[in-house]
Structure formats: C-alpha cells, structure tokens
Simulated assay, not measured.
Amino acid sequence: MAERTSFSNEEYADILFYYGAARGNAEQARREYGEIFPNRRLPDARVFSRTFRRMRERGTVVRYQGDAGRPRLEVGDDEEEILNHFQIDPTLSTRMIARRMGRSQWKVWYTLHENDLHPYHYTPVQAIEEGDPFRRMQFCRFLLNADVEDRNYLKRILWTDESKFDKDGITNYHNAHYWSVRVMGNPHLKRQKGSQRRFNLNVWMGIIHNRLIGPHFLPQNLNGVEYESFLRNVFHELMEDMPLETRQNMIFMHDGCPAHFRLAVRSWLDQHFPDRWIGRGGPIPWPARSPDITPMDFFVWGRMKSLVYATDVPVPNIEDLRNRIINAAQEIQSELTDSRVVKTGVVRRARACNRNNGGHFENEL
C-alpha cells in the first residue's frame, strides 16, 4: 500500500489529544495546540477532525491509497485550490468550481467530502439596515408588555398584508448550500433577499385571533390611491361577519410600504382606529423590514402557498390561480378553529427578537 502522511506520529498523537480535550471542537483544539507547541507547524482545523475520523473508522491516523477494487480518486495538487475556493466563498457550487478549474464535478465533491465539509442549506431573510434592530426591539417589547397588561391585547390585533402569487409557485432553495465542516454542526447561515416580486395576482388578507379575513384581490401594482379606495369601499364589507365588539376594539396593523404611507390612508386610519393602528407613521410605529414578526408572513402566506402550489403542475390560468387561493383560505380557516397560533407565534418571535438584540432570529425557532 502506498502511504501518505503529513505529520509525525508524535504530532498525530497530540492532535488527537487536544481534539478530545476540546470535546470535538476543532477550532478550539487548533488554538490550544498552537499555544502549547508554538514552534511546530500549526495544522488546519480540518486536520483535527479528519485525524479523529480516520482513527475511529480505520484504527489508524495514516491516510492510504487503496490498491484493490475501485481506485480512490487522487486529488493531488488540486485539493488546496478547491478548498481555497470554498474558503473564500462557502456558497459556491461544486459545478461552478469544476467548470472553473476544468475538473470533474465528482473530483470537487470528493475533495470536500475528504475534508469533512458538508452542504448546509441557508435561510433567506429580509435585509436589516442600520437602526432597524433598535426599532424592532422597541416594538417587540411593546407587544410583550401590552400582552402582560391585557391578556386579550394580541387577540385584538388585525394583522394585514399583501402578497403576490404567480403561475410558477414557490422558489426552490434545494440547491442553495453553504459548505461547512460537519463536526462543527449546521452554521444556520442566512442570506439576505429582496421582498418585492412580480406575480399575476396581488392578494390582501388579514388575520385576527383565530379568524381569517379575505382574500381580496387588489390591482397588481398597488398604489396609495387604490389602497385608500380599498379601505373606504371594501374593507368594512370584509369585516361584516365579525362581532360588533371585535370591530369596535380592533387594532389595525399594516406594514410600511409606500401605498400604506399615503396621507389620506393615515387620516382614514386615525378616524376609524384612533390610537389603535400599527404602521409607518402611526400611533404605534411598525419597525421597517420586519416580516418575521407578523403572523401573515410566518403563518398565513407560507401555509397558503404550500396549499396553492401543492402539486408540481403550473397553474394553467389566472382563474385557476384565483380559485386555488380562495380554496386555500377556506382550508386555513378550518385549521384556525380554537387555534392559538397567532398569539403564541407572535409572543415567541418577540422574545426571540429581543434575545438577538433586534437581529435575525428565525434560525433559532
């Protein structure tokens, strides 16, 4: 057998010792190893995990090239170059690197596998700008304090939002990966994404406690004039089935998109919901770029799109899409009977937001 080794037996023994002392934390083991042996060549963190894996699986720290059966792929000098690519940008695809280097995709996969790198999915999240975390924490603290003072406060909020649906359905993130050392666990990487997308139908809906309001179909490109017209002429019709007491004590919520910020819209809300509406420029300010706090985003739209696009067959026409949305709303309403998903979800997310100082928190839920 051809043997290939990079360190002495003494060095490998110390590598295993400090990897065990660090309880499998390769980065910590590397730091402690470097402090104890400042005059030695400092191994990469991956060497610690690879050495341990070889000892556990094969009973030896030495790397071998098998001479029987299917020959193992010889990575050679390409290994360092491949690893450097993913160290610079861990979101790269194996196909892209294989094409860039003029090598097979299998060779890239093999190199990553041998170095204990694993592809983890990242979570797309809304971009957060400077000053947003503080405002998000303020709002979440307000919600939690209001819930303590009045146990029915969150049940009185009518959360509203608009979302666009097209014929193709949900974006598939199956091939979106982040390469990281397996022993370190899933890093729960997040990637920012935009929130505005073009679809064929623009849908308005609301949810208050365990009641779904809508759907109502808005113009595809909503502006302030059309939104004001919706509030004045359609909104009360959608609320007719709600008890009078609920309508009288209801707190209206919408986000801060430009159509919602129109002066006439805010004046209408001040008139119909005095000191009882949440939004940009309202008596209760809505923190910008915070869809992760509203149940319309973390519950209604996700559930609705999973129902609308339950099959892989594209929606054939706009009427079929409309019917799918209506049917999905009816199914969601049946699921909401005696449900506490809204209040429980909002409280849980408000607490998580505060724990993360107003930053992203969905990867921890």
Results as ranks from 00 to 15, higher is better:
Met1Asp: 06
Arg4Cys: 12
Thr5Met: 05
Ser6Met: 10
Ser6Arg: 12
Phe7Glu: 01
Glu10Val: 15
Asp14Lys: 06
Ile15Leu: 05
Leu16Glu: 02
Leu16Ile: 07
Tyr19Asp: 00
Ala26Ser: 15
Gln28Ile: 14
Arg31Trp: 14
Tyr33Val: 12
Ile36Val: 13
Asn39Met: 04
Arg40Ala: 15
Ser49Asp: 08
Ser49Met: 04
Arg50Asn: 13
Met55Val: 14
Glu57Gly: 02
Glu57Trp: 02
Glu57His: 05
Val61Thr: 04
Gly66Val: 09
Gly69Pro: 11
Arg70Pro: 10
Leu73Asp: 03
Glu74His: 13
Gly76Val: 08
Glu80Asn: 11
Ile82Leu: 05
Leu83Arg: 02
Phe86Thr: 01
Ile88Glu: 10
Ile88Asp: 09
Asp89Pro: 06
Leu92Cys: 11
Thr94Val: 14
Thr94Lys: 05
Ala98Glu: 08
Arg100Tyr: 09
Met101Asp: 00
Met101Gly: 05
Ser104Ile: 03
Lys107Pro: 01
Trp109Ile: 00
Thr111Arg: 03
His113Asp: 07
Asp116Trp: 02
Tyr120Pro: 00
Ile128Tyr: 01
Glu130Tyr: 13
Asp132Ile: 04
Pro133Asp: 05
Gln138Asp: 14
Gln138Ala: 11
Gln138Ile: 13
Arg141Asn: 13
Ala146Asp: 01
Asp150Lys: 11
Arg151Pro: 15
Arg151Tyr: 10
Asn152Ser: 15
Tyr153Pro: 03
Lys155Ala: 12
Leu158Thr: 10
Asp166Leu: 07
Gly169Phe: 09
Asn172Ser: 15
Tyr173Asp: 01
Tyr173Met: 08
Tyr178Arg: 02
Tyr178Ser: 03
Trp179Ile: 12
Asn186Gly: 10
His188Lys: 11
Ser195Lys: 12
Phe199Tyr: 11
Val203Thr: 12
Ile207Phe: 06
Ile208Trp: 01
His209Thr: 07
His209Trp: 10
Phe217Ile: 04
Pro219Ile: 02
Asn223Ser: 07
Glu226Ser: 07
Glu226Ile: 01
Tyr227Phe: 15
Glu228Phe: 15
Ser229Met: 04
Ser229Lys: 07
Leu231Ser: 09
Leu231Phe: 03
His236Gln: 07
Glu240Val: 09
Pro243Gly: 03
Thr246Glu: 08
Phe252Ser: 01
Asp255Gln: 06
Gly256Tyr: 11
Phe261Asn: 13
Phe261Glu: 10
Phe261Lys: 10
Trp268Phe: 14
Asp270Ser: 10
Gln271Glu: 13
Pro274Val: 07
Ile278Gly: 05
Gly279Phe: 08
Pro287Asn: 07
Pro287Gly: 06
Ala288Thr: 13
Arg289Glu: 06
Ile293Gln: 03
Pro295Tyr: 05
Met296Thr: 15
Asp297Pro: 04
Phe298Ala: 00
Trp301Pro: 00
Trp301Ala: 00
Gly302Glu: 04
Arg303Pro: 04
Met304Phe: 06
Met304Cys: 15
Leu307Gly: 09
Val308Ser: 09
Thr311Lys: 04
Thr311Ile: 09
Val313Cys: 09
Val315Leu: 12
Glu319Asn: 14
Asn323Pro: 00
Ile326Leu: 10
Ile326Phe: 03
Gln330Ala: 14
Gln330Cys: 15
Gln330Asn: 15
Gln333Thr: 06
Ser334Asn: 11
Glu335Val: 05
Thr337Met: 12
Val342His: 07
Val342Glu: 07
Val346Lys: 00
Arg348Gln: 08
Ala350Pro: 01
Arg355Met: 12
Leu365Ile: 15
